Lab assay of single mutants.
Amino acid sequence: MNLTVNGKPSTVDGAESLNVTELLSALKVAQAEYVTVELNGEVLEREAFDATTVKDGDAVEFLY
């Protein structure tokens, strides 16, 4: 899956889609429990991480 992460191209191997929690784990995001996630310009509530799917071509920003 090809994404733009914090403005840079990134690839997650072996996945066509992941939820936000899985993406944080796959990318080994440090202190993931404290990060705010913006997906395609929309800031996500932490409670929505498990239910929100990240797909090929999406833009993700991790805000600390």
Rank of each mutant, 00 (worst) to 15 (best):
N19L: 06
A32S: 11
T21G: 05
L18F: 08
V60C: 05
Y64G: 07
A32M: 11
G7E: 02
P9C: 11
E16H: 13
T36R: 10
N6I: 01
V29L: 08
G7F: 04
V5W: 05
Q31E: 10
E16K: 14
L27N: 01
N19E: 02
R46K: 07
S10V: 15
V35K: 03
V12S: 02
V43D: 03
L23P: 01
L18V: 06
G41S: 04
V37S: 01
S25F: 12
Y64A: 07
T21R: 09
A48M: 13
F62V: 11
M1A: 03
S17M: 10
V12P: 03
S17G: 08
L24G: 00
A30R: 11
G41E: 02
L24A: 02
L23I: 04
V5H: 03
M1E: 01
Y34P: 04
D13M: 15
L23K: 00
N6A: 05
P9F: 09
K8P: 02
E33R: 08
A48G: 06
G14W: 14
S10F: 15
S25Q: 13
V54G: 01
G57D: 04
V20F: 06
S25M: 13
F62T: 04
K8I: 12
Y64W: 12
M1T: 05
L63M: 11
L39Y: 04
Y34L: 12
T36Y: 09
L24I: 09
A59W: 13
Q31S: 11
A51I: 14
A59Y: 13
L63T: 15
A30K: 11
E16P: 10
K28I: 05
F62C: 06
Q31R: 12
L44G: 01
F49W: 15
Y34M: 10
D58A: 04
L39R: 00
T36Q: 10
L39G: 00
V5S: 03
T53K: 11
A26F: 14
L63Q: 11
Y64Q: 07
N19A: 05
V29P: 05
A26T: 08
N40C: 04
S10Y: 15
N6M: 05
E16M: 14
E22N: 08
V60Q: 01
G57C: 05
V37F: 06
D13T: 14
E42G: 06
L18A: 03
G41Q: 04
G41P: 03
E22I: 05
A48C: 12
T11S: 09
K55I: 07
